[in-house]
């Protein structure tokens, strides 16, 4: 005369929800700043509703059954939105772990036979564990989405091409140069050269934390591509540390015009264009 725990839980729905809410509200990880208690209750209620509507005597022992798809969908949605709102993994995990406690409390209260209690507890534990896995998977996916979006944003905002003079454009690079970023930098720089009809481009690397052989290769490629367009490319902002590593690594930059500062690159560019910047001479007699 085995008790149907699915039926048992359905009967105890209200208490289950209460237990769960109590657990959640009692935890130190509660984030009232990110989500109101009413919202949390709504979310939990929806989940309990869906779970209890789904489980029956047979599928409760099969966590991988497709019956649970709608439940997992709700869970994934919750987990994803928590990841975006900035919940920590612990806070997100506790949502589902506290449900396990609530379920076990009910089983403990209702089932007297120890063997059966153990069996039922195992089933419930397995089921909730499979829920936890989904929770974490989607939580991480949610965070990855955030990271990807930010990466795109950074790539977009971090390559401004500045027209510093008639025929001279400058591009300050801030942050590391990987191959994807190099492509964006090159594309922007070359497009601007075409648009402004510039013949000199200055690539300022003061904001690049380190130059290794790979970064140097990217710089060389950018210079070569600029030359193919028919413009000259000057690299400025060579800090002493960069000069040291470049030489220690045996990177050959001799085919490239390099300058220590943007100012000296600009001065060089002016002389290439045969321009002269002069101080207005005042008539002063000594």
């Amino acid at each position: 005369m085995k008790q149907d725990i699915a039926k048992l839980l359905q009967k105890k729905k209200k208490q289950l929800l209460e237990n769960w809410m109590t657990n959640q509200l009692a935890d130190s990880a509660l984030r009232e700043d990110l989500m109101s208690n009413e919202e949390l209750r709504g979310q939990s209620e929806e989940f309990v509703e869906s779970l209890l509507n789904t489980i029956n005597g047979s599928n409760i022992a099969e966590p991988s059954s497709s019956d649970f798809d709608p439940v997992l969908e709700i869970l994934a949605g919750i987990s994803m939105s928590r990841a975006r709102q900035g919940f920590s993994p612990r806070e997100t995990g506790y949502y589902i772990f506290s449900l396990k406690d609530a379920l076990l409390q009910i089983l403990q209260d209702e089932i007297k036979d120890p063997v059966q209690l153990f069996e039922s507890s195992m089933q419930v534990t397995r089921l909730v564990d499979s829920f936890s896995t989904v929770t974490f998977e989607t939580f991480i996916k949610g965070r990855e989405d955030v990271i990807l979006r930010q990466t795109d944003e950074i790539a977009e905002i971090s390559t401004p091409v500045i027209r510093v003079w008639d025929g001279i454009v400058a591009l300050p690079i801030i942050g590391t140069l990987d191959s994807a970023r190099t492509q964006v930098v090159m594309e922007n720089l070359l497009e601007q050269i075409v648009q402004t009809g510039s013949s000199i481009a200055i690539l300022d690397i003061s904001g690049v934390p380190a130059v290794d052989s790979l970064v140097a290769q990217h710089l060389i490629k950018t210079v070569s591509a600029t030359r193919l367009m028919g413009a000259e490319c000057i690299i400025s902002g060579i800090r002493p540390e960069i000069a040291q590593t470049v030489v220690h690594l045996g990177i050959d930059l001799s085919n490239i015009v390099t300058k220590a500062s943007l100012a000296s690159a600009l001065r060089y560019a002016f002389s290439m264009l045969q321009l002269e910047v002069k101080k207005k001479t005042k008539v002063i007699t000594q």
Partner: peptide, 20 residues
Amino acid sequence: PAVAITLIELGLELKGVHTA
């Protein structure tokens, strides 16, 4: 620009001609 970037990646620098 896209052609220039591709040529460099491919390893062609069009040596022997000037560019404008």
